[in-house]
Design a binder for these strands. Structure first.
Length: 519
RNA sequence: UCCGGCGUAGCUCAAUGGUAGAGCGGGUGGCUGUUAACCACUAGGUUGUAGGUUCGAGCCCUACCGCCGGAGCCA
């Protein structure tokens, strides 16, 4: 944290210069100034008052601090009466260590200046629904849970870039406006470009391959856009992707790079974001179990697994477990409803109401799972070689392991034209997907690229693609073509997984989802 | 696009087809150590929209709108 440290003077209480104190201190640093008079500025996050003492909880972005205003400081005390939630203010006071203060330190206020009295703040300290919170995303960001997520996101992005910078990669910014592409045009957002239709990029890869031929090891980090009409907890229409591309690298090397990156992210979070993960209630044991190398299997092995009795009995066990859970929850619901009727105290009622809501929500979830499980069993048992793996299949596979799992060698028919077929078995390509544990889905997709001009052109023809539009891309195979490959990592999915979030919408400051563009 | 769920006060939620309620938040007053403070009082409603069934609809039926979750597709 940067503050005016060089000019900071710690002024002992009672010093005549007290009133000239302009030593702004960040709340995170209060512990260094116990017994001194300091100034703090921030927003009022919570307040309580008795007749003769008021407690103000101030947030300044670095932390939270309880400010105590006693009635024997009449000027300041009078001002506390007008304060509303999220009002901005500055206070001057003495830092004290006190067990009763959240965080262990508090400020005994001498002066209080109001910067702005906030209008009635829509977000209370009580529970809100997601629609309401999403409509107030610009304010929701101020809540401790959201700031914790944003800090973890920041730290992980820092670690991603450091990972590649330290390995000699060069950052390449790829264009976001791209000409009409044959590949998956239905999932691209069209943009009017001086009268011509162009599209928002869904990957920087083709451009990155060009740059890899110039610089050897490159990566891009930027937003990508998918117009898929997906309304699930794993999808955004605008999300950030980290894509490395490496010249002379073949599939095994790409896989090693991918697992080293993800391992580094997990290690970073566990080391540097303990407080934030704790605040989110993230159980860290599953993250701590992760170690290199990550398990690997081929698509064909996954198909065999899906057909196995192992998976069948696991899904049957899931069904029994879900039904048992549902029974438990219904009993819990009935019990809580009865207790609710008999509850006298308000706080008891409130607590029970909250329990009721949680139980009802989980019941809906378990019911959904029970509805879907027969379909999962059916699709696993009848899964035919050549189909693409769906989210259900991925989840089934990932549950066999404690770490992210790398699946390679998919049928070429379900993968992109630029992926290189396996010389040992041309039905499959040299690709990799990495599936996160705990049902968070695919976090990485990548491959070794086809480096032969004629093979690439043949694949483009098969896909019915316009050769002219990709002349420049094919050129890379005409001037010193080399084996190369890379992958893309979905930043938000990684953040959601590491934070243990139920929904991806909280991983990005202003999520763009199907049907939601504001704020 | 398909399947399921939900829509009641500013917010979170109650309410057998029979007088629409509570808590929080707001307002007023009280309280010298609060931790989602507490206590008392108070204001606050076209039950998403439009039809229908019924003596009577927040509740039942139909359509539409909105939101949530899931499938497909993907990172």
């Amino acid at each position: 944290m940067i503050h005016s440290a060089p000019r900071l003077r710690m002024i002992p209480v009672g010093d005549d210069e007290m009133n000239n104190a302009k030593s702004w201190v960040h709340i995170a640093d209060l512990g260094k100034h116990v017994g001194c008079l300091v100034s703090v500025r921030g927003w009022l996050q919570a307040h309580r008052s008795s007749g003769k003492v008021a407690f103000l909880q101030l947030r300044d972005g670095s932390g939270f601090c309880q400010c105590v205003v006693a009635a024997d400081v009449p000027d300041a005390f009078a001002k506390t009466a007008s304060l509303t939630l999220e009002s901005s203010l500055t206070v001057v006071g003495e830092v004290r260590a006190d067990q009763r203060a959240p965080g262990g330190f508090e400020l005994l206020v001498r002066e209080l200046d109001v910067i702005h009295i906030a209008a009635e703040y829509p977000i209370s300290r009580k529970a809100h629904g997601t629609d309401f919170l999403m409509n107030h995303r610009h304010l929701w960001l101020r809540s401790p849970r959201q700031t914790a997520i944003l800090r973890i996101r920041h730290r992980l992005i820092q670690a991603m870039r450091a990972f590649f910078d330290e390995r000699g990669f060069t950052l390449i910014d790829t264009p976001l406006l791209t000409p009409g592409a044959a590949e998956g045009a239905g999932t691209l957002f069209p943009v009017d470009y001086f009268g011509d239709p162009v599209y928002l990029a869904q990957t920087g890869q083709l451009y990155l391959e060009s740059a890899a031929m110039a610089l050897g090891k490159v990566y891009c980090f930027g937003p990508t856009f998918r117009a898929e009409k997906s309304k699930t907890r794993r999808h955004l229409t605008e999300f950030w992707m980290l894509e490395p591309e490496v010249a002379f690298a073949e599939l095994p090397e790409i896989a090693e790079l991918a697992e080293a990156l993800v391992m580094e992210l997990v290690t970073t979070a566990l080391r540097d974001c303990q407080a934030e993960l704790a605040h989110l209630g993230r159980e860290v044991a599953p993250l701590q179990k992760i170690a290199l190398p990550f398990p690997r299997c081929t698509y064909s092995e996954v198909v065999d697994l899906l057909h196995s009795g192992q998976v069948r009995s696991q899904l049957e066990a899931d069904m029994v477990a879900a039904e048992n859970r549902l029974g438990e929850l219904r009993a819990q619901l009935a019990e809580a409803e009865e207790a609710r009727g008999g509850a006298r105290k308000q706080w008891q009622q409130e607590r029970l109401d909250q329990t009721l809501q949680q139980v009802r929500e989980e019941i809906r979830e378990v019911e959904t799972r029970i509805r879907n499980l027969p379909a999962h069993m059916e699709s696993a048992a009848t899964f035919a070689w050549g189909q693409d793996l769906g989210g259900d299949e991925e989840t089934i596979v990932s549950r066999q392991f404690d770490a992210p799992v790398i699946i390679t060698h998919y049928p070429k028919t379900v993968k992109a034209f630029y992926m290189k077929p396996d010389p040992q078995d041309p039905r499959v390509v040299l690709n990799l997907d990495m599936i996160a544990p705990e049902g968070y889905g695919e976090i990485i997709g990548g491959s070794q690229r086809e480096e032969d001009e004629h093979a690439l052109l043949a694949r483009m023809d098969e896909e019915g693609m316009d050769r002219a539009a990709y002349e420049w891309y094919v050129d890379l195979r005409r001037y010193g073509s080399v084996p190369h490959g890379g992958f893309g990592l979905g930043v938000e999915r990684v953040v959601a997984w590491i934070c243990g979030l139920r929904h991806i919408r909280e991983t990005i400051p202003f999520p763009r989802l199907m049907g939601r563009l504001t704020p």
